[in-house]
Simulated assay, not measured.
Amino acid sequence: MRSYVLTVFEQTGEKLLDETFTAASDDEAKEIGQKRLTDEGYGDHTHRCVTPEAKLILFHR
């Protein structure tokens, strides 16, 4: 399992969500991240999800 970081920002730059979670693959992490964003209502906020190597797998501005 690998650790991924999901971060959501307000337009002011304030962090609304900053959490780490584990997944077996980048594809699984992308699904988990998208579900978390939907569940929290952050789909339209600026967000990113990165791999342990800092590769972006989810990004919305």
Rank of each mutant, 00 (worst) to 15 (best):
M1H: 07
R2G: 05
R2P: 00
Y4T: 05
L6C: 09
T7C: 08
E10I: 07
Q11K: 15
T12Y: 02
G13C: 14
E14K: 04
E14D: 13
E14P: 00
K15E: 02
L16S: 06
L16P: 01
D18I: 05
E19L: 11
E19V: 03
E19R: 03
F21C: 06
F21M: 15
T22K: 15
A23C: 13
A23E: 07
A23Y: 11
A24S: 08
A24T: 08
S25M: 00
D26K: 05
D26Y: 02
D27N: 12
A29Q: 09
A29P: 03
K30F: 05
I32A: 12
I32T: 11
Q34F: 01
K35H: 08
R36P: 08
T38G: 02
D39T: 15
Y42V: 04
G43E: 05
G43D: 11
H45D: 00
H45S: 10
H45N: 11
T46F: 15
T46P: 14
C49K: 11
C49A: 03
V50T: 07
E53F: 02
E53N: 09
E53C: 07
E53P: 01
E53V: 07
K55P: 00
L56M: 11
I57W: 07
I57S: 00
I57M: 01
L58H: 00
H60E: 07
